[in-house]
Simulated scan of single mutants.
Amino acid sequence: MKNIQVIDGAENCVYDIFAATEEEFALIFPEWEDIAFIDEVRDRGNTEALRRALGSLWGRRVPKRDAQGIHGILFYQLDHKKAYYATCRDKEAANSDGSLLRRA
Rank of each mutant, 00 (worst) to 15 (best):
A49T: 07
L57Y: 07
D66W: 13
L74M: 01
R51Y: 08
F37E: 01
G69P: 07
F75H: 02
R65K: 12
N12S: 15
H80K: 11
E11G: 13
D43K: 14
R42A: 14
L27G: 01
N46P: 10
E11Q: 13
R52P: 05
D66R: 15
A19L: 00
T21F: 01
P63D: 07
L57P: 03
G55A: 08
C13M: 09
N12I: 13
R60P: 03
I73A: 10
D79W: 03
F37V: 01
G72C: 05
D39F: 13
G45I: 11
I35D: 04
C88Y: 10
Q68C: 09
N46V: 05
I35K: 06
I38H: 05
G59W: 08
R60A: 06
E40I: 05
R52S: 10
G69E: 07
A86R: 13
G45L: 04
L50M: 07
E24W: 02
F37P: 00
F25N: 02
G59D: 13
I17S: 03
H80I: 12
R65M: 08
T87E: 09
E24D: 11
E31Q: 15
F75T: 02
R44C: 09
F37M: 00
L78A: 03
V14K: 05
L50K: 09
Y15I: 07
E23W: 00
A53N: 06
E24C: 02
H80Y: 13
V14F: 12
L74P: 00
H71S: 04
C88P: 03
G69M: 12
C13G: 06
G69H: 11
A86Y: 10
F29M: 07
E48S: 14
R51N: 08
D34W: 00
A26W: 06
E48K: 15
G69T: 09
K81N: 08
R60N: 13
E33T: 13
F75A: 02
L50Q: 10
I38S: 08
I28D: 06
R42I: 15
L74E: 01
V62L: 04
L74Y: 00
A67M: 11
D43H: 09
F75Q: 00
K82C: 04
E33P: 06
P63T: 05
R61T: 12
L27R: 02
G45D: 15
E23P: 00
L78T: 09
Y76S: 04
Y76T: 07
A19M: 00
K81P: 02
R60G: 06
L78H: 02
P63H: 15
S56D: 13
A19T: 03
F25S: 00
R61E: 14
G72Q: 04
G45P: 09
K64R: 07
A19V: 02
E31P: 12
K64F: 11
H71Q: 02
A53V: 00
A67S: 14
C88E: 06
H71L: 01
L54Y: 04
E48Y: 14
D79M: 05
K64S: 02
H80F: 15
F25H: 04
Y85R: 06
R65N: 04
I35H: 12
Q77R: 15
F18D: 04
A20Y: 05
A67K: 10
I73T: 03
G59C: 11
R89G: 09
E11R: 06
L54M: 06
A53G: 06
R52Q: 13
